[in-house]
């Protein structure tokens, strides 16, 4: 049995000799792990996945999937990896069952095996009742599920999902999440998932790497990364930036760390709830009046803000191309 690891060492992708899309990216995804590759649009997520899945060549560094080099042993990588790309690759004139049978046969199954496997897959992604409809008539969510089924045709050891839920409604998103968890738990599939949704990475991934401008800026378990921020936070909203600044000066000695986000002052404390009375006291003494006070647990968004100095902004969702 081969290992199901994905290893990237100093991966570099440079376009036209100058633009660096991926810059010295290194990580290791362990066997049987769900690994979330998180970053805003254009951070280098898709470029990385395209090198790992043998679609493009690294300009520098190396990567292996299940021990096979993506550059020199591409056909072994293709045999072991399942890939669902952000751009769904389905033929609108064909039926789901036809596409799945072809897919399974291309991976070496006989016609009968392939037929059986295709039916199984349609069951799994809940498309069994629409097999007679051409794919072109499917909704965005259905196409996404069929695309996932295509990636699973040969029971891959490692599954690459490039933004699997972008543009999906919340219900379809939950369906995909449940399926990803099931594949991981029941089949021990290693799953490499890129996403621009913090919530998705937080929800699904055992470990995450955050990529920004082609470089990994943080990596670890979501809980661990959040803990590095220094525990819970008290968020104080003030009328304007000047007040935020004054409050920060007054309160800085009471916290591990402060962070200013627009007109919100965030105080990181080991035990935020217990510190609330003291904070309010201090504010009253100095005559500073916050318009609201909330307690939050840190999110990956805060981690992102911490390591990049900017908010993690997600651009408006891109609607699925209508075929």
């Amino acid at each position: 049995m081969f290992d199901r690891e994905i290893i990237a060492e100093h991966l570099v992708k440079r376009y036209n000799g100058s633009v660096i899309a991926v810059n010295e990216v290194s990580f290791k995804v362990n066997s049987g792990e769900i690994f979330g590759f998180l970053g805003p649009n254009g951070a280098g997520k898709s470029t990385t996945i395209s090198m790992l899945t043998t679609r493009s060549l690294p300009t520098g560094g190396r990567a292996t999937v299940c021990g096979y080099d993506v550059e020199r042993q591409a056909s072994d990588v293709r045999r072991l990896a399942g890939v669902a790309l952000q751009e769904i690759g389905l033929d609108p004139l064909m039926k789901s069952i036809e596409m799945l049978v072809i897919q399974a046969q291309l991976f070496g199954m006989s016609r009968t095996q392939a037929q059986k496997r295709a039916e199984e897959l349609l069951e799994i992604v809940k498309l069994s009742d629409v097999t007679d409809r051409p794919v072109g008539k499917y909704s965005g969510g259905m196409r996404r599920r069929l695309d996932l089924a295509m990636a699973l045709a040969h029971e891959p050891a490692v599954l690459f999902l490039d933004e699997p839920t972008t543009g999906l409604d919340p219900a379809s998103r939950r369906d995909i999440w449940a399926e990803v968890r099931r594949l991981n738990r029941e089949l021990g599939m290693t799953i490499f998932l890129t996403t621009q949704y913090l919530e998705e990475a937080d929800e699904l991934a055992d470990r995450v790497a955050i990529i920004n401008h082609g470089q990994i800026v943080a990596a670890g378990q979501p809980a661990e990364l959040k803990a590095q921020l220094g525990g819970d936070a008290i968020n104080l909203t003030f009328a304007d930036d000047a007040t935020v600044e004054r409050a920060r000066k007054q309160l800085s000695d009471m916290t591990n760390r402060t962070q200013v986000d627009r007109n919100i002052l965030r105080l990181y404390l080991a035990n935020a709830a217990a510190a609330v009375p003291a904070v309010i006291n201090r504010l009253q003494q100095t005559g500073l009046q916050p318009s609201s006070l909330t307690l939050t647990q840190p999110t990956l968004d805060d981690v992102f803000l911490q390591v990049t100095g900017q908010r993690f902004t997600v651009e408006p969702e891109v609607e699925d191309k209508v075929a």
Partner: peptide
């Protein structure tokens, strides 16, 4: 051309075909 446009061609390239 249709396969290239709809992405199925790329999908096939990821199989051992």
């Amino acid at each position: 051309v249709r396969d290239i446009d709809n992405g199925y061609f790329d999908k096939l390239l990821l199989t051992p075909i």
